[in-house]
Amino acid sequence: MSEMLKTQDGREIAYDRIDGAGPGVVFLGGFRSDKEGTKALALEAWAKRHGRAFLRFDYSGHGQSSGDFLDGCIGDWFEDARAAILELTEGPQVLVGSSMGGWISLLMAREYPEKVAGLVTIAAAPDFTEDGMWAEFSDTQRQELIEAGQVALPSDYSDEPYIITKRLIEDGRGRLVLRTPLNLPMPVRMLQGTADADVPVSVAVRLIEHATGPDIRLTLVKDADHRFSTPECLKLIELSVLKVIQRIGEVA
């Protein structure tokens, strides 16, 4: 049964947590995803097998947490992640960020490097509101967003369209990580599928070229899609987390 964390902003964040050895592992999900996804549950099972502390949670407007998805933005979801990580974990953590969760984990690493022992990103989507949405909108879509406050986009994952709000786009501009220096002093493992239709390989290459740090590696998986949830991909995520934990132990 999930527990609830009430944040300083009055939002209620649903979470599941297991105790274990540190550094703990925190899973950060993607845009419109929740903590019950395949990757989150597989990683939790791995953490249980290895006696490792683990946390998964829902951003506000996602899953079991309070709020309406359409009211949210990157800043809100970053604040939710920050509250969960700072209040529900002990010591530095290994953050595993999927898609948008990759962007949010990078924000955490930039703002709270002392709390982030290591990073594993899965199809990380930094700055996607600007580079993957606004940049690809037609003039008509941009005008609609500005005048109506939102625009509907078709979704590959459901019959319901994505509703993109003006607030999401405008707030995202204050959270960009690829326009200013991004130092990642912790071990970082980036995973990316070559058949990802949502986050192209060029994004992963741009991120690894932009970030600075002593131990950053990118692994490309041929034919893997954005879900990155095949048994082979899940195994690679687990292995990457283990490698990061081992590297942390070597450096300590």
Rank of each mutant, 00 (worst) to 15 (best):
G101W: 13
E238K: 10
P214C: 14
T38F: 01
I13M: 05
H50W: 13
V188F: 15
L191F: 04
G91C: 14
A211I: 03
A152N: 10
Y15M: 00
R217V: 05
P214Y: 14
I85E: 01
A124G: 09
V94L: 11
A152E: 15
I163W: 12
R167H: 04
E12H: 12
G67C: 05
P185E: 08
E209F: 01
K222P: 00
F137H: 06
T212H: 03
A124F: 07
G193K: 11
E209M: 10
G91Y: 13
V94T: 09
A14S: 15
D80E: 05
L191C: 04
Q246F: 06
E87W: 04
R175C: 15
G213D: 05
G24S: 07
C73Y: 13
R11E: 13
A152L: 06
M190Y: 02
T140L: 12
L239K: 15
E144N: 00
D9A: 11
R11S: 10
M1T: 10
I104G: 01
S33Y: 04
R189Y: 10
A135E: 13
I245L: 15
V244L: 08
G63W: 00
T38Y: 02
Q143K: 13
L107C: 06
E12T: 08
E79P: 01
L239D: 15
E130Q: 12
S158P: 06
S66H: 04
L41M: 14
L153C: 05
R167S: 07
K35L: 15
K166V: 04
D225W: 00
A135M: 08
A252Q: 14
D19T: 05
T180V: 08
E130N: 04
K39P: 12
E130P: 00
L41W: 04
A195V: 08
